[in-house]
């Protein structure tokens, strides 16, 4: 599977609680490229990801995906996009396996087993997410990335709460996604070690 689409953002303005987070922001992500969004706390990194994902509405500017304007109707983008926000979306009352079945219902069972083993979650399959540690829960949320055909990954602080081996594993997985022509937009405070990323600074 190889992707060859691009995402272009032009003249984007984000406003939150009557405060301008960014004005006239333009950039594009090409196939096989990862962009790390930089900025201080409250600079609007998460908001930018939410706007691209379609959680927040666009105040001004346009978003193009695969040469089509998706500013108003984000469905084309959403079908081939994965967004993992700061709140991961895991259901606490469901087990690890049930959460994975919820978000990735089409994942083949053997592939799920393999990914869970790799993520160190295999023995926790039937444990409720409620009783996992923050790092383990983060791994469960990120497990979606192992079963997806999405070309664009929007990751908000994906390395938060992960241990060193988890970070290395995720970086390797992102690298693999990039080598297939995928696109990644991420925010993180710790600089990735092995990942080559383009940096984009948000200045108010």
């Amino acid at each position: 599977m190889h992707f060859s689409v691009s995402l272009t953002i032009s003249g984007l303005g984000i406003e939150r609680s009557d405060r301008d987070l960014c004005r006239d922001l333009s950039f594009s992500v090409q196939a096989g490229e990862a962009i790390r969004i930089l900025g201080e706390n409250g600079a609007g990194k998460s908001s930018l990801l939410k706007v691209v994902a379609g959680v927040m509405s666009v105040q001004e500017g346009q978003i193009f995906f695969a040469d089509q304007d998706v500013t108003l109707d984000r469905r084309l983008l959403q079908q081939t996009m994965i967004y993992i926000g700061h709140s991961t979306g895991l259901k606490e009352r469901l087990s690890v396996a049930e959460n994975i079945a919820f978000y990735s219902p089409h994942a083949p069972l053997d592939q799920v087993d393999q990914a869970l083993r790799q993520l160190g979650l295999f023995h926790l399959q039937d444990v409720l997410v409620k009783s996992l540690s923050a790092g383990q829960a983060r791994r469960v949320a990120l497990a979606r990335l192992w079963f997806t055909n999405a070309s664009l990954w929007l990751l908000d602080e994906p390395f938060a709460a992960l241990d060193a081996s988890g970070v290395a594993m995720l970086e390797a997985h992102i690298q693999q996604h990039l080598s297939r022509g995928g696109m990644v937009l991420l925010t993180t405070h710790q600089a990735p070690c092995s990942l080559s990323v383009r940096e984009l600074a948000l200045v108010p």
Partner: peptide
């Protein structure tokens, strides 16, 4: 828990 964002 953020799953509402995921619905959207």
């Amino acid at each position: 828990d953020g799953s509402m964002e995921q619905w959207v």
